[in-house]
Write a protein that binds this DNA or RNA. Sequence first.
DNA 1: AGCTTCAATGTAAACGTTTACATATCAACA
DNA 2: TGTTGATATGTAAACGTTTACATTGAAGCT
Lengths: 338, 338
Amino acid sequence: MRQPSPTLHDVARVAGVSTATVSRCLNSPGQVIESTRVKVNKAIQDLGYSPNFGARVMAARRTNTIGAIIPTMENAIFARGLQAFQEELRKNGYTLLVASSSYRPEVEEEQIRSLIARGADGLLLIGHERDPAINRFLETQNVPALVAWAYDATAVLPSIGFDNLKSMCDLATKVIEMGHRHIGLITAETNTNDRARQRVRGIQEAAKTAGISPDNLCIIETSYGIETGAKALETLMSAKPRPTVVMCGNDVLAVGAIRRARELGYDVPADVSITGFDDIEIATVVAPQLTTVHVPHREMGTNAAKALIEMVEDNKPGEVTELKVSIRLRESLAPPAG
Amino acid sequence: MRQPSPTLHDVARVAGVSTATVSRCLNSPGQVIESTRVKVNKAIQDLGYSPNFGARVMAARRTNTIGAIIPTMENAIFARGLQAFQEELRKNGYTLLVASSSYRPEVEEEQIRSLIARGADGLLLIGHERDPAINRFLETQNVPALVAWAYDATAVLPSIGFDNLKSMCDLATKVIEMGHRHIGLITAETNTNDRARQRVRGIQEAAKTAGISPDNLCIIETSYGIETGAKALETLMSAKPRPTVVMCGNDVLAVGAIRRARELGYDVPADVSITGFDDIEIATVVAPQLTTVHVPHREMGTNAAKALIEMVEDNKPGEVTELKVSIRLRESLAPPAG
DNA sequence: AGCTTCAATGTAAACGTTTACATATCAACA
DNA sequence: TGTTGATATGTAAACGTTTACATTGAAGCT
């Protein structure tokens, strides 16, 4: 039923040349004289030849494939960065292998092994936190890895991203300058997510600097989603004293918080201010528009691809790159009433 | 600096067995006695061994890799479905190769060839519209392909999805029943996107059935995005007579339309109703909440994965599956004023 | 004991490329 | 005419698995 596909040998035989010449026609045509090339190409056409991937990979020792493991594709911030990453890879002749970890470290570990077993020439990972054994594994496998969405010059792996702590600290400082003293905080789970943890610490540091007691900081940790953000806001609004601002670890939580606030009859920002982090599209669409931290996702994806390709091709050690973020002040943040 | 990774031979040597036994340990552990398996696994651990992909593929003649080509990962509707697709693949030991076409047919074609050259065992594609030559190519290469996000029993390739035409027709019928007679329509580009085209035709048919003249249908075609949706709404609102409802080809366009309507001082839905399509998360977050067509994205992704794996493993011909959609009536749609 | 069976393991031949090295050809030049 | 160098092509050895087949040894039978 399934007839064997033609091989290099078949092409060589039909064209009346050696396999080496056929291979060169495909990989470095400049080395082959015109007349030969024509013969070979005709044979390839006639036979409907397409090179065998496995054999090619084995002989050439690379797959031209880069793996990426992200928590989830559903989160817009990863989707956008990943899209840019993939576009840049494609420009350079690489293909993207994707896996998602659902924010679970043991799944991420399994996925790392799986992508390497599938011949990924390099790996894009999110965040720095992982079992040291994995880093050793990456080393023995000789697969370069780059961390994105985080910046940490002291970490084992090179990274490209922004300083989550400092960015959030800057935003919190602005919030405090406006006069807010009771701050609610909705964060994604911090135990397996170093970005989330950094952001919380950023707020804590800003509060400390401003001489605000940690007791005035009411923190709720929840899983990722619009609905969970909504629930968390409800809880916060019944705290005593009620926070005058709710800072959220990301835009999705913030959007959920805004929705629930509205549903509960609170005016945003008159009754309560709300801030986010990431500046995904949704931030400008909600009413009121969301004050948030803008992160250059596409730039990060593109640069990550470039850096990783260099690491793979030139065996270059990875560099640590910090990207600039900026605060987008929009309607959802205002000084507290009174 | 870069020492070669350990091979099957190294493992065999360290464990004191043959390469065949090591291979069996990996692929059919039942055939190997417990004591041997322990020795081998220890050797694998100690060496940090991971099988070479190319060699494995070449010897086994399969990659356990499925390719997907979607217009873009940035669009939430593809991201969510793709995430579910990937999760189901993983459950079955497959990995996902991703490429994006940016809605450009020639790029899609190139990506199809590229993914096949990389050994994809099967392919997930979006929409039915493509050069017949590509379908022939898929056939000669013996790579099964499945179309998602569309349903068409008469098409060459099997598909899983919903009836874009009928779904939109149903929504339009509801809109018309409410009393709307002047309908604005914002659609994504229809020349390279059969889903968009079907949706437009759905509205046209509903209008025809209700005896509404095509002149009362004002169609604007634009590229995908919140901002383009906003611009299109602005244009529509200056048409004479002004439409009492603006139906949008997808939620993203609709959300942009809502925003601009608000910015221009129109009340939605009192001054103008707005509808979307897809029911992505954003639909429940905008104010007013968006009336739209709910599509079971995750279900589609999961089922697509199952079907494709069957096609690959059992050489089964693909089936055509229609999924049910449902209309979500929310605040943004109301009868016209007066 | 001798024979058969079966499970566990070993041996070695593919699998289809790429590429270092060898060889052939030919033009240019002393 | 012989030498040199450049260019085009051929030869054959990897590359690291899987797997058909061969071998071994022990258990179960007569």
